[in-house]
Simulated scan of single mutants.
Amino acid sequence: MRLLHPSGAVVHLAYCTNVHPAEDLAGIHEQLTGVAARIRALSGAGRLGLGLWLSRRAARALRDDPAKLTRLRARLDEQGLEVVTLNGFPYGGFHDEVVKLRVYRPDWAEPERLAYTLDLAEILTALLPDDVTEGSISTLPLAWRTGWTPAKAAAVNANLTVLARGLRALAERTGKTIRVGFEPEPGCVVETTPQAVALLGGADPVHLGVCLDACHLAVGLEEAADAAALGLPIVKLQVSSAVEAPAGGQQALAAYVEERYLHQTRCAAGYTDDLPEALAGGLPADLPWRTHFHMPLHAAPPPPLTTTAPYLEELLGRLMIPDGGLAAPLTRHLEVETYTWSVLPGPVDIAEGIAAELDWTRRRLAALGLKEI
């Protein structure tokens, strides 16, 4: 869906389809006519924005057969759906029984990541609505931190140079600018926004920037004001919340231990790569913890647990209304990205949940002065 910012800029709000398991084109078409259509109906959106996730397998099929790409664009139009942003973080297997660290492979030192991202950029130019000339792709924060060497850093820099060159050539050929945002995440080479500045500050500012994930920033204990003022282009904001446990109440987090995804956990005095390690004594219990478990935006977990929704609301305000005035927003692409519905405790209706998250978000944006188009 689209919202008009007080400055006159159009802000795009979407939900990320990496919550759905399909990795081939047949499954993606089924998503569009099934759950996405239902979310659109539940949300009452005239046009529903999708942060489309295309696995490597699906992206290759679209790249190799223009007719399939044309059919996908037609299906989006038929269903009242639009795509201005892609999630290019998971390469494939995002709904395997165990994902954990495999979500970071291939990383930006490997040619497969570069080729995949350039294919996504080419695809996105064909999927953009006719009246939109700028798209975005979120991607991983270079690599997981272990194994980072000078040789690997050099390979990453070489690939980013080729990426920027390819995006510039694509813009010249199509008239459409595709921007890639690297997403800081706990435990990765680019874990914080200062690290993003240090490692990406010299990159092409027109085509490369950061994707801020509010859950990741909250787990990293970053101040919203600092994240909003990092000095790099903010290609996209992923609208998300982490789960938080008060001092002494951390055992309630045991309900969120599961085997599929990594749940980095932090407090003011330490960090663990996954929640079971923290619960086994890896973090002190006399301080609050935040865990990288994307929580529904609109619903609080059972006490004593809470979420970092207040942090998200502050971040939205700082990005949408910089300096409290009518200046343009610091990002125009927003993506609700609660991909953990399938591993949340208890029964859930994903379509109803995502529709409620979109409503939660647009109500916050309306309070900031944005009006739905």
Rank of each mutant, 00 (worst) to 15 (best):
A74S: 12
H263Q: 12
A229Y: 05
P150V: 04
D273L: 09
A158H: 14
A74D: 13
S138C: 11
A280L: 10
A218Q: 02
Y261A: 15
S43G: 01
V206M: 13
M295Y: 14
L42K: 09
L334H: 00
V11G: 04
E185P: 08
E357F: 00
L101Q: 10
E335C: 15
G8W: 07
E352R: 14
D226P: 04
A227S: 14
H207F: 02
T272H: 04
N157Y: 09
P6K: 15
T125A: 09
S43W: 01
P233A: 11
R179N: 09
A61E: 12
H294A: 07
P66I: 04
L368Q: 10
I234S: 03
R168Q: 14
L48T: 02
L167A: 06
P106C: 14
L344D: 05
A229G: 11
I321G: 12
R362P: 00
P288K: 12
I354M: 01
P288E: 10
W289P: 01
L128K: 00
A300Q: 15
V343A: 14
S7C: 07
G231L: 03
V132P: 05
L167Q: 06
L52V: 00
A252S: 11
D349Q: 08
L120W: 00
W144F: 11
L62W: 01
V189E: 10
E82Y: 05
E110H: 13
T308W: 13
D323I: 03
G46W: 01
E337N: 03
A242H: 02
H29P: 00
V11I: 07
V19R: 00
R362F: 01
L217Y: 03
L4N: 12
S43T: 00
A254Y: 01
E183D: 11
R332L: 15
T308E: 13
L160W: 06
A158M: 09
D273F: 04
A41N: 01
L330I: 02
P184W: 02
R168G: 12
E191P: 07
G231P: 11
P129M: 06
K236H: 09
L230E: 03
D204P: 05
V11E: 02
V84S: 08
R47I: 03
E82W: 00
L212N: 00
L217G: 05
A41L: 02
N159M: 07
L127M: 05
H292N: 11
Q79M: 13
R73P: 14
L297T: 06
A158Q: 13
F89R: 10
E78D: 15
L312N: 12
A356S: 15
A285Y: 09
A169R: 12
L114Q: 05
L319G: 08
A309Q: 14
I123R: 11
H216G: 03
S342N: 10
G46T: 07
V132Q: 10
A154F: 05
G44W: 02
T161Q: 15
E357A: 00
A218T: 01
G202I: 02
